[in-house]
């Protein structure tokens, strides 16, 4: 177990270093950092002095190490655009993105599993056929189109829900949450559905396919032959076995929710890190872009790590190594 965790941690570190290298090269290959920081009218001496002070005259590997060291401490420098520390900008906007991502992940996961299981168990039923067809639409429509459609229906025509922003937020020791106010929750619905819909349909189709596969296995047939109730067979046995492979892919999907949030945040003017990133691109605000890249990679890596551990906990075949297990395999 310990060896497994250590191995996965090392792999994660390598991934993070590669991403850091990409983020680092942004500074050197996209524009000149000095030009970005000082105006056109700065003198050559001023530029040289700034260059020296920022350590830009050091060898590249030294600069990279410094960059990684700072990043590890959450230090990403000063935003070119706002002249504020990038870490502060991110910290301000992270809660919005995390709450959006968590809500849509919960939405996608719960509904995806429920609908997937339902349509597998009632394969020939009318409702499950309908759900499957509808899910095709969910998979094929681009996110921004879904968002605009939802805004058009629920915000413009029905006027039930707001079309942009986060609503009122409550400050909980630096974490500004929208979960505690009515307007905050209302504002969350459309973006969360927009962001989660694609994952929802994917998870649903995956759960369904996997469950149908499991329902055909010998141990399910044997469970029925033992006289177990339908409930015990379908939910005690089939569902648990279905979720083992589903965990992995679902985990990856949840990681991509955070990345996909860029589009949703833009459509709904959601004040999260995705929107921050879009604005940063427009102003070639390299430190913010670099920090965003590293942050997203970090989310992916952490989610992957959790998924692996879950997998390990759910499937006893990975957990226990015995002579019998090895010969049987």
């Amino acid at each position: 177990m310990l060896a497994f965790i250590v191995r996965r941690l090392l792999q994660s570190i390598v991934v993070m270093l590669v991403v850091a290298l990409v983020a680092f090269s942004l500074f050197n290959f996209v524009g000149d950092p000095i030009n970005n920081m000082v105006g056109q009218e700065a003198t050559t001496e001023q530029r040289a002095e700034l260059r020296e002070r920022l350590g830009l005259n050091d060898p590249i590997p030294v600069q990279f190490l410094r960059f990684v060291g700072n990043a590890a401490q959450g230090e990403f420098g000063i935003s070119y655009r706002t002249a504020r520390p990038v870490a502060d900008l991110i910290a301000e906007r992270l809660p919005a993105t995390v709450e959006l991502a968590v809500t849509s992940a919960a939405f996608a996961l719960t509904l995806g599993i429920v609908l997937g299981v339902y349509s597998a168990l009632n394969r020939y039923g009318w409702t499950s056929r309908f759900v499957m067809t509808a899910s095709l639409i969910g998979v094929s429509l681009p996110t921004f189109l879904i968002g605009i459609l939802l805004i058009w229906i629920f915000a413009v025509n029905l006027q039930w829900l707001p079309s942009y922003g986060r609503g009122e937020v409550v400050d909980l020791g630096g974490w500004r949450t929208g979960f505690l106010t009515l307007s905050g929750l209302q504002a969350l619905i459309l973006p969360a559905v927009t962001l989660g819909l694609y994952q929802l349909t994917l998870i649903m189709r995956l759960v369904r396919a996997e469950m149908l596969e499991v329902l055909r296995t010998d141990y399910i047939k044997f469970a029925r032959a033992r006289g177990l109730s339908n409930r015990a067979v379908n939910f005690g046995h089939a569902l648990k076995n279905t979720l083992v492979p589903v965990i992995t892919i679902t985990g990856l999907q949840l990681g991509s929710i955070i990345a996909f949030a860029i589009i949703t945040e833009t459509v709904f003017q959601w004040p999260g890190v995705g929107l921050l990133f879009i604005i940063a691109i427009r102003f070639v605000d390299i430190p913010v872009m670099a920090a965003y890249l590293i942050l997203i990679a970090l989310f992916f890596v952490i989610i992957n790590l959790i998924v692996d551990l879950l997998y390990y906990l759910v499937d006893p075949r990975l957990r226990v190594e015995t002579p019998a297990a090895r010969t049987a395999a």
């Binding site: 296995t217 010998d218 141990y219 029925r224 032959a225 033992r226 006289g227 339908n230 083992v244």
Partner: peptide, 24 residues
Amino acid sequence: RHIRGRQIGMVFQDPLTSLNPLYT
């Protein structure tokens, strides 16, 4: 299902796949 297992037991061909791997 009160007959299956209770009155008529069943043994299948492949013991490697007859048991659910996730339960003791």
